[in-house]
């Protein structure tokens, strides 16, 4: 599904990612952990094509397509979804309208018929019920005046509606109370299927109680210094990162 080979990237002249190798197969959930400043969010941004990051080496393939060649919106249409660490507010733009536009861009790209307002509402309301979200989300402007938890839940709703091949969740758990955390985890687990994959970036083991990863990777100073299964996350929770960093040095 996703093949990252020796990826190097930075901001201006400052290197941040110094050679990432990661292979994610369909049906898998990968967790990426690591201390602050290790490059976790940079990795998410580079995958989604955010401006301001320079890729200086390596390649990223999504189902054999060169992802780095595509504009951000093309990546999204190919099935890359980024759940933002800080979802952006768009005042005055109705959430339902925004989401329908996004859904239809992606449907168009897939050669599917666009959803009219009625059918879209039906679909989104069903999805919201599944996820336990309140319908008033739809009437409000995109993320404007939302609490931190509401913003994250809105990301999950968008993810559920867009049905991505590759979902990258950038610290979606940060700042969530336990109920919100459950909703987010539930959304991710519901999405999980044999034809898609998830990369969950997190600081805390806590989220991984709810989203059980197949693989856990530790990112430090722009490199993956350790990979393992879910037990690695527990080990990190107990011992912190220092022992790994010492080993890596």
């Amino acid at each position: 599904m996703l093949e990252i080979k020796n990826l190097q990237a930075g901001i201006e002249d400052k290197p941040i990612l110094k050679g990432i190798d990661l292979s994610v197969n369909a049906g898998e959930v990968h967790a990426i952990m690591g201390p602050n400043g290790s490059g976790k969010s940079t990795l998410a941004s580079v995958l989604a094509g955010r401006d301001g990051y320079d890729v200086t080496g390596g390649e990223v393939l999504l189902q054999d397509d060169d992802l780095l060649d595509l504009a951000p919106e093309e990546r999204a249409r190919e099935g890359v979804f980024l759940a933002f660490q800080y979802p952006v507010e768009i005042p005055g733009v109705n959430s339902a309208y925004f989401l329908r536009s996004a859904v239809n861009e992606i449907r168009k790209h897939r050669g599917e018929e666009e959803l009219d307002a009625m059918n879209f509402l039906k679909a989104v309301k069903a999805k919201m019920k599944e996820l336990g979200l309140s319908e008033d989300f739809l009437k409000r402007p995109v993320n404007a005046g939302f609490s931190g938890g509401e913003k994250k839940r809105n990301e999950i709703l968008q993810m559920a509606m867009l049905n991505p091949k590759l979902a990258v969740l950038d610290e979606t758990d940060s700042g969530l109370d336990i109920d919100a955390l459950r909703i987010v985890a539930d959304g991710v687990n519901r999405l999980k299927g044999l034809d898609n994959a998830q990369v969950v970036i997190t600081h805390y083991q806590r989220l991984l109680d709810y989203i059980v990863p197949d693989f856990v990777h530790v990112l430090y100073d722009g490199r993956i210094i350790k990979s393992g299964d879910k037990t690695l996350a527990h080990e990190l929770e107990e011992k912190g990162y220092d022992w790994l960093i010492r080993d890596a040095a």
Binding site: P72, R75, A76, F84, V88, E89, F98, E105
Partner: peptide, 10 residues
């Protein structure tokens, strides 16, 4: 804001 919209396919 623009990037957020782009990331959703717009």
């Amino acid at each position: 804001q623009i990037f957020y919209c782009n990331q959703r396919g717009l």
